Every structure is written in C-alpha cells, then in structure tokens.
Simulated scan of single mutants.
Amino acid sequence: MSAWHTARATWVTADEQDIEFVVRDRLPDWGLTRRSRRIAAQQLTERDVSVEEIAELIGVTPRTVYRWRAEGFQEAAA
C-alpha cells in the first residue's frame, strides 16, 4: 500500500479528545486528521471564533476555513 493510501485512511477518522483540546482550550494542533480539522473548525465557528484564529489553531489557511463554511461543513458530519 502506498503512503498516499495509508494517509487517506486517516482522513475519515476523528479523535474527539484532540478536537476538544483545540475547541475548549484553544490549543493549536496541526496534527489533526482531515475530518478532525473540519469538525474543530465547525465547532469553533459555532463559538464565533474568527476565521484567522480557526486557521491558526488547526493548521490550515483562512481560505480553507471560508471554503468549508461555504460547503456547510458537510464532510465533518459524514
């Protein structure tokens, strides 16, 4: 199995404890899985956190956060 296939498997998993640290304690975590980042971004958005701060906390660009908001965080719920 290639490295890409191995990494892709982790895109659909989410570690609730890691998400909680980011959302509740506002501790940056750039090691979140793709799904965990979207969930954390959604929860931070619901708490009225700025796009810039969300991007900084989860290790993505502000543009990514804006895109996820426009998509309605659909992947996070999946």
Rank of each mutant, 00 (worst) to 15 (best):
V22T: 00
T61S: 13
R63D: 14
T13H: 11
H5P: 10
I54W: 01
E52R: 09
G72C: 04
W30M: 06
V22E: 01
G72M: 03
D25L: 12
D48H: 10
V49K: 01
L44P: 01
E16C: 06
T61R: 09
Q74R: 13
P62R: 02
W68G: 06
L44T: 00
G31L: 11
G31H: 09
T33P: 08
I19S: 01
R38E: 15
A70W: 06
T10S: 13
V65D: 06
R38Y: 09
G72R: 03
R26P: 02
A7K: 12
L57F: 04
A76P: 03
W30L: 08
R8Q: 12
Q43Y: 05
T10N: 14
E71R: 10
G59M: 03
E16K: 07
I54C: 03
E20S: 13
D29H: 03
A55W: 04
A40T: 01
E53M: 09
H5Q: 15
E52P: 07
R47K: 12
Q42K: 13
S2I: 05
E20M: 10
R34W: 13
E71T: 06
R34E: 15
A40F: 00
R26I: 03
I58A: 05
I58P: 05
V51F: 04
A9D: 13
V65L: 02
Y66D: 11
W4Y: 14
E56P: 08
V49S: 04
D29R: 06
M1D: 13
A9H: 14
I54E: 07
D25Y: 11
E75N: 09
S2M: 08
T10Q: 15
V60C: 07
A7Q: 12
A55F: 05
L44C: 01
Q43P: 05
L44S: 00
V23G: 01
A14F: 06
S2Q: 09
A70R: 08
S2H: 10
F73V: 03
V65G: 00
E16F: 05
S50N: 03
R24C: 07
F73Y: 10
E20P: 06
D29T: 03
Q74L: 15
L44N: 00
D29S: 08
E53Y: 01
S50G: 07
I39S: 01
W30C: 07
A7S: 12
R47M: 09
Y66M: 09
R38L: 15
R34F: 13
D18N: 10
Y66G: 07
A14S: 12
V49D: 02
Q17W: 11
T6Q: 14
R67E: 10
L32A: 00
R63K: 10
H5T: 13
L57E: 05
A3W: 15
D48M: 10
A55Y: 04
R8D: 12
L57M: 04
W4A: 15
L44Q: 01
P28C: 02
S36Q: 05
R67P: 04
Q42M: 15
E75V: 08
G31I: 04
T13E: 14
T61C: 06
R34D: 14
M1F: 13
D15Q: 06
P62S: 04
F73D: 05
L57Y: 03
V51S: 07
R8S: 15
G72Y: 02
E46D: 12
V22H: 00
L57V: 03
Y66V: 09
T10D: 12
T6V: 15
E52V: 10
P28V: 01
W4V: 14
E20T: 10
R37D: 06
D48I: 06
